[in-house]
Nucleic acid binder design. Structure first.
Length: 771
DNA sequence: TTTTACTTCGTTTTT
DNA sequence: CGAAGTAAAA
């Protein structure tokens, strides 16, 4: 019996088709990861392909890690020799070796979105671009899409000649690229673009990688953009053993430049390509698949396919309407609690999905209220938190003095009396001498015309120099510790805001732990490597399977995951599909949202619950939205409750009145529009200045719950009650503690409530008070 | 130069 | 409604 016997006929075909281009159209839940891992195993074990000649590209680090582990279980040896990597980390790896051939230093920095924004702003100022007329946001996305499409500055300029707006964008684009180059920095898009440029300009480098990667596999192929396609096209050009796996129905990253034509036209680019469809679904019940198929069938221009399963209909899709988002959240919390406490389900079997990150707040508040342990995926990335970025900026400055962004960030942290005025003077001087900002600072006291403020620069330079010297013989973790000690970072945080200082320090410590772990896993790794690693982690990468927690995330973040019980909240027009897509009047935008709906529905294995609210607060305004059109696209017999009659617009009503003289029935707004939660739990620390980060999302919930973040990594020791004590719960009232069990990072407490009966809850969530 | 108070602005989704 | 940016004050 071989490992391939467990595959179905189509899967087997895909695994054994090893030579030449191959397109695998893999529907949701059709076992595409299985196919990919088995295919790699087959190449090694049956075809005698050397592991180091195989390249597998995934979308996230998490997927890469999973794939490597699964391959490792299938093959005898060599799984560590395969390149399993994301586009970005693969390109960084290549560029670290060869980017000096196209005018960058191999110790380049990587700029995240915040850094980009800062650069754009500075550029706009320098070029006198009117911020009223041009939003930095749109400039950024214009530049980003140009890069995704591999349009160079020069090409953009040529195209812009007769268009004022484009001309301005072209100017900003040029200046932006020049700034990045002089900072020896690349943004996310550049990481791909520069690799393509390297391959074009240095055929011998390309050739060496073509020889190296004789068998290439790309996962989530529908999400690739033009630049990424060009990259893999070049790599595969010589041996043409390119296998791409994707599902056009799950293409949801158009806004990020994903080019759906890459998958729809694959057979045009590679004429000899074989196409295999995987349509048998191993994940969901028939009912869920029927709903998904019904919704997605409203899209035009898709590859023809339909999912099927051997499973039965099982339970219907639950549909619930509420008066407000509070009630919606209340219902979901109760429903999850019920399933866990009465039906023996685990929290980790459930997920709540929503369209926008902003929707997580109300849900989070309710989960705390109900005592449900949860994690939020997404929101603000751990590495974009101010305190983490401060420390990283120190590291970047030490590592790459040309990174002006980093230098500017930390030059006055802690306060050294070096403000914008001084910095601008130094910066101008730097420009004039074509030095970097840091170079000028080093020689500041020898320069004339800088005034007395330059005396303050000296100690800063000396500090950095001493760090550089120490960095030679220290680990990254030790270096961070040295930095926070020398600049007394804790004191700085306390001066700024004593309330949050402790939490922030906790994040810094978390960063130190990450550095320790990183260096343990990569013994040869340098500071540069650590900074690159840190720049390329995504939120989803931090979701660990171990914790028994309910997951909250956007529909986008949910792609590739599955859960027995899925809730999709906010099923309303203007929320989902988003108002942007509705008002754009472009059917393609709605189709993209519909694919998102398809992704959401197909995450569910057994049970799917769709909820919507008649009123919802948005930007301080109450909106009344009709139920999502996607819900209406689900056949009624699959739903467990009936939909309200389609709401008629005011015009329709007026017309009906005029034509028939009948006053139309009042449907909206609903009765309960002023609904307030019975007793809102006011988070002690609200989600503001300090928007929760993810770092597995734990930080966020602790912060909302008013619990020190320290508990996210260490078990709580300080509960002030024990078995036999009388305690009070915010919702269930008073009761007696009848049991306590210690869990790795928490206590599980059993309480017999006077009114509400016996409940089992986590101590850190229940916030029980001794009475 | 830094802090504070007021205004404005806007919200999709993110490697 | 909340964050972020700007103008004025210390």
């Amino acid at each position: 019996m071989s490992i391939y016997d467990s595959l179905n006929k189509e899967q087997k075909k895909a695994v054994c088709h090893t030579e030449g281009p191959l397109l695998i159209l893999a529907g949701a839940g059709s076992g595409k990861t299985r196919v990919l891992t088995h295919r790699i195993a087959y190449l090694i074990e049956e075809m005698g392909v050397k592991p180091w000649n195989i390249l597998a590209i995934t979308f996230t680090n998490k997927a890469a890690k999973e794939m490597r582990e699964r391959v490792d279980r299938l093959v005898e040896y060599g799984s560590d020799q395969i390149w399993v990597s994301t586009f970005h980390s693969m390109c960084v790896r290549i560029l670290r070796r060869y980017i000096d051939r196209i005018g960058f230093g191999t110790d380049f920095s990587i700029y995240d979105t915040d850094d980009q924004k800062t650069v754009i702003k500075a550029v706009m100022k320098r070029l006198n671009v009117d911020p009223k007329q041009f939003k930095e946001r749109s400039l950024m996305s214009a530049i980003s899409s140009a890069k995704d499409e591999l349009i160079s500055v020069r090409e953009y300029e040529l195209d812009a000649q007769y268009d004022y707006t484009k001309k301005v964008i072209a100017q900003v684009y040029r200046e932006y690229q020049e700034t990045l180059q002089s900072n020896n920095a690349l943004d996310f898009d550049d990481i791909i673009v520069k690799t393509v440029e390297l391959f074009h300009r240095c055929p011998e480098v390309l050739d060496s990688y073509q020889e190296r990667f004789q068998y290439i596999m790309v996962d989530e192929y529908q999400d690739t953009n033009t630049a990424q396609f060009e990259l893999i096209r070049l790599l595969a050009l010589k041996y043409r053993n390119l296998c791409v796996v994707g599902d056009d129905d799950q293409s949801i990253y158009k806004f990020r430049g994903a080019n759906i034509r890459n998958i729809l036209d694959f057979e045009k680019y590679f004429e000899e390509a074989a196409v295999i469809k995987l349509e048998q679904n191993y994940r969901s019940s028939q009912t869920i698949l029927d709903a998904a198929n019904a919704v997605i069938s409203n899209n035009k221009g898709r590859k023809d396919k339909a999912l099927w399963t051997e499973r039965g209909a099982e339970s219907k899709i639950h549909l619930r309407q509420f008066d407000s988002a509070y009630e919606e959240a209340d219902f979901i919390a109760d429903d999850v609690a019920h399933k866990v406490r009465r039906e023996g389900l685990s929290y980790k079997d459930c997920a709540i999905l929503y369209r926008t990150n902003a929707q997580s707040r109300v849900l989070e508040e309710r989960m705390i209220y109900e005592g449900i342990p949860y994690n939020v995926v997404g929101g603000t990335n751990f590495y974009s938190r101010a305190e983490v970025k401060d420390i990283l900026a120190y590291l970047k400055t030490i590592d790459n003095g040309r990174d002006e962004m980093a230098v500017r960030r930390i030059v006055n942290i802690p306060k050294r009396g070096i403000g914008n005025a001084t910095l601008d003077k130094l910066s101008a001087k730097a420009q004039e001498m074509s030095f970097t900002l840091y170079d000028v600072m080093e020689i500041a006291d020898e320069l004339s015309g800088l005034g007395k403020s330059c005396a303050k620069v000296r100690p800063f330079v000396e500090l950095i120099e001493s760090f550089r010297e120490k960095a030679e013989r220290m680990t990254v973790a030790e270096l961070i510790q040295e930095i926070i000690h020398r600049i007394d970072y804790e004191e700085y945080l306390k001066d700024n805001d004593s309330d949050s200082a402790e939490d922030r320090m906790e994040n810094v410590n978390e960063l130190i732990s990450k550095a320790v772990i990183f260096q343990k896993q990569n013994e040869e790794a340098t500071l540069t490597d650590f900074l690159a690693e840190v720049a390329l982690v995504a939120d989803i990468d931090n979701v660990e399977a171990g914790d028994d927690r309910l997951l909250l995330m956007t529909l986008h973040a949910a792609k590739g995951l599955e859960f027995p019980h899925v809730y999709i909240a906010g099923m309303e027009d203007n929320i989902f599909p988003s108002s942007m897509s509705i008002y754009s009047n472009n059917e393609e935008d709605i189709e993209e949202e519909r694919r998102l709906a398809y992704v959401g529905i197909t995450r569910a294995m057994q049970d799917l619950t769709l909820t919507y609210a008649r009123s919802r607060m948005l930007r301080g305004e109450t909106q009344y939205n009709p139920v999502s059109r996607f819900v209406r696209e689900i056949p009624q017999q699959l739903l467990d409750s009936t939909l309200p009659a389609p709401r008629r617009s005011m015009e329709d009503r007026r017309m009906a009145e005029e034509m028939f003289g009948i006053p139309s029935r009042e449907i909206d707004p609903p009765s309960g529009f002023d609904y307030r939660p019975k007793a809102t739990v006011k988070p002690k620390i609200t989600v503001q200045a300090d928007k929760p980060f993810i770092a597995k999302g734990i930080g966020s919930l602790n912060q909302i719950a008013g619990i020190s973040r320290g508990m996210s990594t260490q078990p709580e020791t300080g509960v002030d009650y024990a078995i036999g004590d009388r305690v009070k719960h915010i919702k269930f009232g008073e009761g007696i503690v009848t049991g306590m069990t210690k869990e790795p990072r928490d206590y599980k407490v059993t309480v017999e409530f006077d009114q509400a009966g016996t409940k089992i809850m986590y101590a850190s969530f229940a916030k029980l008070k001794r009475v």
